[in-house]
Design a protein around this nucleic acid. Structure first.
Length: 418
RNA sequence: GUGAGUGUAGCUCAGCUGGUAGAGCACUGGGUUGUGGCCCCAGUGGGCGAGGGUUCGAGUCCCUUCACUCACCCCA
């Protein structure tokens, strides 16, 4: 029996790497001009950090974390998301003392022990962005503009829909929650068993339910937008106003709630209709209370995460990336030619050209075939004839044309044409 | 954790009511003894996820088990 990867853990093969690189490179370019700096945090943290930040009662913490004990009996967990670690690092390294806002991003794997399905893996990758220190709606708008710019740049914004909501703040959310619970209690008999359970633990999550009878109940449910306090209302309308200014299409969705406890006020998600039911490509929101909750100063913050697997999946559907082949393939015939070819190859590589050749004693036809498979742009053909005539043939693979090149000083001649 | 579906060559899949494995692609070689992409020919390659049962005989029926996939759940 051969070994296979652990369930829910995937190899990312060379064919797919160009798409990952494209995504990462474009993201980094945009983050740079928006003033975000990279931070790299460990993938293991004390379990307590996630319990405190994400919420003890959330599914992520209560049943999806990879938790283990180290040899001293301390409980550690693989990170199920990035924000907790970044906030921890922000506090621990006193980044707030640097003054002003801190804008950070990180890219890496996350781990959740869920049942794998389309667009959902146990190890998955996120691009994570956090902005600390600014309470105002302008930074909310900044992040949303930035993320739409990124998706535009990689050609995916067309197929995505931006959902927006405000979850209120500690001043107004409790009141809404109270009214909602009261309403749902009355209709409890129509709710599915999951929602009846949610009602106890996290009533806002009932909005996520896909069961028809629950959605019917929700149609007449109180809406968070009617319960926002004046300051939250003002904040939210400024964000919307700004997005309109920049002609970013969005849809206010009062049913958009988040799975993590720490979110406040603005919350948003980018959805696609092309990937099955796991349709959230990116999501985020404001979390003004989290830094303090984790023992730091009372600093506001906002952030988002992009699901890389899902984004790459979309890229693969929409974009045909051109295969890059070697600049030159040297088809050498015979021992002597092969030796020469090898040293030319090394020299050309030293100058930054991608050059390949065949080491085995194969016929010209086989070598041409291999050059074609590799998508080599040009092939230098050199055999005994060429060695004696001191001229080699350079074939342009796209047109099929061939030219002759003097063997003396050949690498210099080649460098000029490739 | 729950439900459904699928597991046959490297890949994609065919194999009717059980009779002793097949196609396309890929790979190798040849047609063109030194020239790729198209075409033609030939060859290499699996014993049908694993285990057990029924049967004269099982990819084909039954049971068990494992894996994968999708959906619920949850979320990026």
């Amino acid at each position: 029996m051969e070994f296979t990867a652990v369930k829910g853990f995937k190899d990312i093969l060379p064919d797919e790497i160009p798409y990952w690189n494209l995504l990462e490179e474009e993201a980094k370019k945009i983050f740079k001009v928006y003033g975000f700096q990279e931070i790299r945090t460990p993938i293991v943290e004390k379990t307590e950090l996630f319990k405190r930040s994400i919420g003890q009662e959330t599914d992520i913490v209560s049943k999806e974390m990879y938790t283990f004990q180290d040899s001293k009996g301390r409980s550690l967990s693989l990170r199920p998301e990035a924000t907790a670690s970044v906030v921890r690092a922000y506090i621990q390294n006193r980044l707030y003392q640097k003054g002003g806002v801190q804008k950070l991003y990180s890219i890496g794997p996350m781990f959740r022990h869920e049942r794998p399905q389309k667009g959902r893996f146990r190890q998955f990758h996120q691009i994570n962005v956090e902005e600390f220190g600014d309470p105002g709606p302008m930074s909310d708008a900044e992040l949303i503009v930035m993320i739409t710019e990124l998706f535009k740049r990689i050609g995916l914004m067309e197929g995505l829909s931006l959902n927006l909501n405000s979850l209120g703040c500690p001043l107004c959310r409790p009141k809404f929650r109270e009214v909602l619970v009261k309403y749902l209690e009355e209709k409890k008999q129509y709710l599915c068993s999951d929602c009846q359970r949610r009602l106890e633990l996290n009533p806002l999550r009932v909005f996520d339910c896909k069961v028809n009878s629950c959605q019917d109940v929700l149609n007449d449910a109180p809406s968070i937008s009617d319960y926002l306090c004046d300051s939250c209302k003002e904040h939210f309308s400024y964000v919307q106003y700004t997005l309109k200014e920049f002609e970013i299409n969005f849809c206010v969705n009062p049913k958009l709630v988040r799975g993590l406890d720490y979110y406040t006020r603005t919350t948003f998600e980018l959805h696609t209709s092309e990937l099955g039911t796991q349709n959230a490509v990116a999501g985020g929101g404001r979390y003004d209370g989290l830094v303090k909750l984790l023992g730091g100063p009372d600093q506001p913050a906002i952030g988002f995460a992009i699901g890389m697997e899902r984004t790459v999946e979309l890229l693969k559907k929409k974009k045909q990336l051109q295969i890059q082949g070697p600049d030159l393939f040297i088809a050498a015939l015979g021992e002597e030619a092969r030796k020469k070819a090898f040293s030319w190859m090394i020299e050309l590589r030293r100058d930054g050209f991608w050059v390949e050749m065949e080491y085995e004693d194969k016929g010209l036809k086989a070598q041409m075939k291999r050059a074609d498979r590799l998508c080599a742009k040009k092939v230098l053909i050199v055999g005994e004839d060429e060695l004696s005539k001191k001229r080699a043939a350079l074939r342009y693979m796209d047109t099929g044309k061939q030219v002759e090149i003097e063997l003396s000083n050949i690498t210099k001649a080649i460098k000029e044409v490739i």
